[in-house]
Amino acid sequence: MSFSTTSSPAIEVNDVRKRFGATWALRGVDLAVQPGTILGLLGPNGAGKTTIVRILSTLLVPDAGSARVAGLDVVRQADEVRARIGLAGQYAAVDELLSGRRNLEMVGRLYHLARAESQRRASELLDQFSLTDAGDRLARTYSGGMRRRLDLAASLVARPQILFLDEPTTGLDPRARQEMWQAIRALVQGGTTLLLTTQYLDEADQLADEIAVIDRGTVVANDTPRALKASIGGEQLDLVLPDDANLPYAAALLERITDRVPAVDGEARSISVAFDGGPRTLTAIVRALDDAAIAAEDIAVRKPSLDDVFMRLTGAPTSETMQSTSHDLVGREAA
């Protein structure tokens, strides 16, 4: 095992493929995560995020390819891998009929901590995740955010070197989401390597050192958040016109100012384009529209979303949003 050398990645995925019946969930995924860093695995529903996490946490065996976690093969050295990882799955795996404290103590006992030690660790974690007051209540009385935090706490009982979090904030309200982000940030300061999956660009941006964008079982981009955002522009402008007569002209105008190709939706009479330069560029756009006597029905500026990333990377919207009318995946709460 050549693990202890600092240069070797904490997580290494080589051409991993996984099929469920006729559908290929993963069609050859490559990833590398350096020790002590956070990788955000960003992708829409059904992209294969959970499948990767399950393979890396030894719950699933890949059909082809290989993966190493902490330098250990996830198939042949699964037991050793399990001793080094923590997993908080997509759905909080807490026992609702036990108290939060008992949930954590049970996990501690299963890691073969002595009874007193697992009790001490449980208290410590309840404290760390602001669950002390609720610690002795049954977990079924917990809110969604509390369950997620308890689940995260459970994955940390044995202080794992490597942690997998599968959509840790999906379904949480904005406040619970902020709390979860804080908890995650505090955690990685201790040096844990983290692989986190998310459907939200802003979440990956906030937390990750590097982002891998995944769609339909393949990684379509792998870069730092800064580089990824630079490639799609700092901000996104959505312009809606009262009729489609001026649509081509307005699009050409926007292209000239932003130096980017806008996405035109004839049916919605809308144009979307990324732009850099903040208010100055925005002012230039508004002035140009005014000079051309193009009246806007609506103008909105927003942070780029996962959709925009996909539009940029693949020229197509995410497979999920093709059927939906939602333009803004950022901060969208899961139904």
Partner: peptide
């Protein structure tokens, strides 16, 4: 369904336990 089996399977315990 609740993911508790996943949690147990991700722990370094005997498969029969």
């Amino acid at each position: 369904q609740k993911g508790i089996i996943d949690r147990l399977r991700s722990l370094p315990i005997a498969r029969s336990a």
